[in-house]
Design a protein around this nucleic acid. Structure first.
Lengths: 239, 239
DNA sequence: CGGTGCGTTGACATTTCTCAACTGTTGTGG
DNA sequence: CCACAACAGTTGAGAAATGTCAACGCACCG
């Protein structure tokens, strides 16, 4: 884990681009930046470990990162994928005091801004303008977690996959919607609570049915109506 | 939906007992109370409906309430049960602008405090001391949602049920732990993403094995070690 | 160029769901 | 106060979805 000495000016610039701090005036932003340092990780390096005492939260500025727990039987259970611009571990830092999960970089380089919890809490009391930023960020998290629960409560594996694909940012090319899987299929399977084999078979079946054609991480949604039906139906129709 | 005219003094007293507002000084508390009104519901009455425009969040003071969505195929999907002292719909109010789910009272009477979103946002800017209360409340929600996801990611139905039972507040009587199901078994099945039949069969099997004896909503955890093993194991051991 | 690990496919085992029937309880209206 | 309806809960039998185990091709990385 490398911690290059970034100037406050650089940090200010980075933070100012983040959704929730955009509305802050420059002087407030500078005070936030004064709580921060920047950290650079290589793929597979961990930023923090489950159970570790917690004195900071983070904002991802570049790369990708996953937050996961290790289950009792030793498997890795991915709780969330963090994409650039999002903050994470606020709950651990502001509420729990320990990290309830492990954060691991997925690509090289992955850059994060580290925000000191102690200093940030003090700032929160002094500069009321930053509270809405924090609240907004937490609300964003809550929203995505509720979506995740909604997804997991969907009964059939096919329906979960269809819902997942449909809510992915789609790229329209020549009238055909296509999406790009942001994570490895093995990982995606874990997020949908299915096995990689089942995922592979679902895609194979849909390819045969002409509903979706998958080529590696790019998947073309050929029949969106059919996918929506699959996503809604509890039980998915066979061939 | 009945809205008796409560005095500010009464509201102040009620709010002051809630975890997150406890640390507020009396004058701040009074200003929060000025944003509030109290609402009383009978069982099966709804407080708000999915899709409705949202201009308030709530704190449950008495009774019980469930937050649920209606799935495309018409079933009711319970997202959360709210117990007294907890606030809810903050995300809808402070972030989304519409209610993403429906809140329904489960008992008569159910009493909630309604907090005007518009007035509360203004207050948030004027009284910085209340920000930590909101942040704390949101963190509590996030924590419970992560736990829920963790539970749903548990593979086998038996393991999910065992984990659920073990994390329930247990009542120790004569050396035997016993827990009280806070909701109907049908509802619990929904929360664990299993069918009522499967739930019934699991309890029947455990009763036969001497692991847990169920009598209506009271369940005695006879062999906690065994339950912990079941909760940890992916696949649950048979007789 | 060999190893490591992902993705795919097949055969099989198993859990869990579905459908159906039955019981007991609750609560509602006559 | 009782009868009847409605519904939660239980149990059984069979079906279906999904997981497990295993083998193979393939890409990527050292």
């Amino acid at each position: 884990m490398n911690t290059p000495q970034a100037t406050t000016a650089e940090l200010t610039a980075v933070l100012g681009k983040l959704g929730h701090f955009k509305s802050l005036d420059p002087s407030a932003l500078e005070r936030v930046a004064a709580c921060c340092s920047s950290v650079e990780l290589k793929a597979r390096e961990t930023l923090f470990q489950e159970g570790e005492r917690c004195d900071a939260f983070f904002v991802l500025t570049a790369g990708a990162l996953r937050v996961a727990r290790t289950t009792v039987d030793g498997r890795e259970q991915v709780l969330h994928h963090v994409s650039p611009g999002r903050s994470f571990a606020e709950v651990a830092c502001l509420h729990l005091g320990v990290y309830p999960a492990t954060a691991t970089a997925e690509v090289t380089p992955t850059r994060v801004v580290r925000v000191s919890g102690r200093r940030f809490r003090a700032l929160l009391a002094e500069v009321p303008e930053i509270a809405p930023a924090v609240i907004g960020s937490l609300c964003g998290w809550l929203h995505s977690l509720v979506d995740r629960i909604d997804l997991l409560l969907t009964d059939s594996a096919g329906a979960r996959l269809a819902r997942y694909l449909l809510q992915l940012p789609a790229h329209d090319e020549a009238g055909v919607l296509s999406v790009q899987l942001p994570v490895a299929k093995k990982t995606l399977a874990g997020e949908l609570s299915i096995t990689p084999e089942t995922l592979s078979r679902l895609l194979a079946r849909w390819r045969k049915l002409g509903v979706a054609s998958s080529d590696g991480a790019r998947i073309e949604l050929l029949d969106v109506r059919a996918l929506e039906t699959l996503a809604a139906d509890e039980t998915h129709s066979d061939d």
